[in-house]
Design a binder for these strands. Structure first.
Lengths: 127, 127
DNA sequence: GTATTATATTCCTATAACAGAATATGTCAA
DNA sequence: TTGACATATTCTGTTATAGGAATATAATAC
């Protein structure tokens, strides 16, 4: 099997930066037509239309026909699954709980390993 | 160009449900070895290792060698970009602000269009 | 009608994903 | 050393992407 389709769920849809930009633009509350989005994003119109198609398919935006224009509107509710998932981790960013967590999991073995290397955080190891 | 690599940023990395599950398991604060993750996830060990590799590359997890085991630990800070982005929309879910937004964007044109069709929300049009 | 504007779709190509199976690497124990 | 265990990597096949260019569809204006 290949990677899950971008249209399979919101997580996949918003993985693409341009689509997040579109969502950002629509988040201001105004309906925007495609031409306006093209101007703001500075990418070709077909590209915008294709991104909008993905966003439509996952329900993140809705369209309203207005003459030859299509006014796009954000349906922010569809972002809720992302919000709900990410919120579980919010507490892990506070130094307070991070300390508790650290203390809870610190074993003698961990301490030994920590003393061999630098004690400071060394994030972003990237493989 | 193809779709952005899963390792290109956190948004792409967490688009895969199994990887979110791994993050969830690690979020409890304990370091877990791969075998433990395999047991919980009920997917083949190579699959888990491959998912962990992606998570490592984007900095979402760190590894600590412990004998022949690798203890994986969540680095929740890397989730912050997702949290920051999604939080901008939180207010849009409250009915209160949704009403304000609706009022702000309602123009004569919108009203005309709305009167022609149903006035209620019709979300999830899916194309 | 024709021309123009707005938007969507199609075709093409290069890239990379994920799953599965097999295999490699590394560590411990006897 | 040999073997058992833990984890990572490689290979293959299928699938879907995103970009670019061209084209199609639809609505408006003249």
């Amino acid at each position: 099997m290949a990677r899950a389709a971008t249209t399979s769920d919101v997580f996949n849809a918003i993985a693409e930066p341009r689509r997040r930009e579109i969502v950002d633009l629509l988040a201001l509350g105004y309906r925007r037509d495609v031409t306006e989005l093209v101007r703001k994003l500075k990418i070709p119109q077909p590209a915008v239309s294709k991104h909008l198609r993905v966003l439509r398919k996952v329900g993140l935006v809705t369209v309203h026909k207005a003459g030859q224009r299509r006014l796009y509107e954000l349906n922010a509710e569809e972002l809720k699954p992302v919000h709900d998932w990410i919120q579980h981790f919010e507490q892990l960013w506070t130094d307070h709980l991070a300390g508790i967590k650290e203390a809870a999991e610190t074993t003698a073995q961990d301490l030994a390993a920590r003393n061999r290397s630098a004690p400071g955080h060394q994030r972003h190891s990237k493989e």
